[in-house]
Design a binder for these strands. Sequence first.
DNA 1: GTTAGCGTTGTGATCGTTCACAAAACAGCG
DNA 2: CGCTGTTTTGTGAACGATCACAACGCTAAC
Lengths: 371, 371
Amino acid sequence: MQCCWQNQTLICDGVTLSRVLKPNPKTLGKPATIKDVASHAGVSYQTVSRVINEHPAVKAATRVRVENAIRVFNYHPNGAARSLVSQRSTTLGIISFGTAFYGPSQMVASIEQAARGRGYGLSYANLAALSISELTDAIKTLRRQNVGGLLIVAPLLEVETASLDNLYKNLPFVLIDAETSAKHPFSAIDQFAGGRLSAEHLIALGHRKIALLSGPQTWYDAKLRNKGWRTALHNAKLEPVQDVAGNWSAGSGYQVTKQLLEHHKFTGLLVGNDQMALGALRALHEHGLRIPEDVSVVGFDNMPETAFFEPPLTTIEQDFASLGQRCLEQLIALIEKPELAPRMQVIVPKLIVRSSTDVPKTQPSAVKVKN
Amino acid sequence: MQCCWQNQTLICDGVTLSRVLKPNPKTLGKPATIKDVASHAGVSYQTVSRVINEHPAVKAATRVRVENAIRVFNYHPNGAARSLVSQRSTTLGIISFGTAFYGPSQMVASIEQAARGRGYGLSYANLAALSISELTDAIKTLRRQNVGGLLIVAPLLEVETASLDNLYKNLPFVLIDAETSAKHPFSAIDQFAGGRLSAEHLIALGHRKIALLSGPQTWYDAKLRNKGWRTALHNAKLEPVQDVAGNWSAGSGYQVTKQLLEHHKFTGLLVGNDQMALGALRALHEHGLRIPEDVSVVGFDNMPETAFFEPPLTTIEQDFASLGQRCLEQLIALIEKPELAPRMQVIVPKLIVRSSTDVPKTQPSAVKVKN
DNA sequence: GTTAGCGTTGTGATCGTTCACAAAACAGCG
DNA sequence: CGCTGTTTTGTGAACGATCACAACGCTAAC
């Protein structure tokens, strides 16, 4: 190989390899641009653009030269410039609510995973409260980030969504685990099926006195799970002993169960999520009741801790990873070819049986056996 | 008020209020731009820019007219164009790891909250594994989103961070709860102090045989908590009965405690987080040990569920909200006036005493009392 | 030796906004 | 009225990339 410096330019076998950088005072300190890379590699900026976009029409030797220059300058393409001119964005927005709870936080994590795999970034906004003003604020924030679409992991009622049509304008979105309707595209885990599954489990074991401890009825999930429970009970010609609601937290599960025990007798307890179930277990224990001998308990979510509750909890497992994957694909389809995008997708959950449920061993009532 | 339409223009009291929109076929369907708004309000685009940036030099009447036009067009400023020309970004990147665990997920949530309050958006990347390639990938993804800085909630060792200097170039960042060093700016909760606090609590109660159940030693937090425990023990002239590690999960807490119980006797157990403590409680129960009579247990994190464990868990509370706030301010300072930004910030955690700890009532050993 | 065709590279316009500066409008004062 | 100073508004040039198109250098065919 024959190399020589000629006029501040390194030439090997007749090919310009690199030029001496003249540190432009205006450019100093700023991140490198496509033009810096281009002049260093001795090509036009368009060629550099082709290399970073993996366009095939670039000679191998040129590509190598450009790639070297990119490395030398630590060049990163400027996303703002890119999405400004190309009129599309590689960022999606995600709006979530209640990330202190297992379900929502798992959904966000799995969606992020899926998005990065597909080359999309994620802009994140968590709602501090379930109000229109918070939602408006979140959408505005995300719009400013120039997101190409929205994934909404929040139990919003359709009314609320509809009232925001203006905000959503020109911005495709997918509702996740929210009010079902044919009006807006959505993805969800079939909470109704999950509810039925857990109630049918207790019924099959022989329970006749079953109490319901729902999540907050402002949440779509909570309502549907409840509906699933009631449908299964109804099919077995049973009425719930009582139907109460907590706020998803272990604390509320504890308190509501305590109240429940004062006035009602039951051998089965269906709970809206695992965290409330934890509180319920504690209240039952304090009341001197054994689980599952006196009362069988079923949770919802299958968070990893439930296997170590006292006793290990029977619960419903939801496949969040595949939900994340699917709703992402749905949104991308909606952006790229709206007419072909699926309107709705539903995933069926699974029953996980552990030792918190068994056939009712005591009389069909919750006997007080204060130790 | 005198209003009339004149030449397709609405004029009230001599002031042009709005013009009829001529739907430009090229503009059709696309989101409105600053120019659409300007021509509708009868001003120049610069004036519109002034209004959306709350510049004071705009006459009240003009401002109202522009704001109306903005509403009419459902105009949202284009963030890409904005950050392209102004060379700054209102988006920050957050890199997290282990969001299945309480600590990391709380930090992310509180940082997002703080960011939106300060007018910043957040781009989110969660590491699937703690590897250089994952981190590299995440940083590249965030760079493409044109983030103005990085918040890194990951227990990276300094070595790893340093090896990425190139990737971080021109991009200010704050490490959160990561390897301390004067080299990079960071914010953290004082895990060492937390560790000492919990160990000193057991020692003050009179425990002499104390076992340690740490988190994974690849995590900075786990190492420092362990160091805190050991320092407190050392100061009391004690040696840990045994020092073992889990992987933060309840399952690992359960298994490791089972092994521990086969070979060692202790009256106190210090655990690296609440989830492992849950598993440990279960293992102790299965072994026929009473808590706190036979063994006292201290967790770490104070996740809301711990108050409903069997028994309610003594643990260490960390103020994630104020950590989020502070590290955000630190990053913003780093971006806006680097020379004035604080290098490091540390928040001291708090002991929460519940019923899982008490004075040792049995002989100073873990007696097997299989029921 | 033209001409056509292909692979490769370069040029000018463009995206929607902000910035620096200039110009207009208005008020106050002698 | 003319001068000055302060508001208020407008103009041209950037920012860093992509897109559409044009032009170049080869090889192959007539």
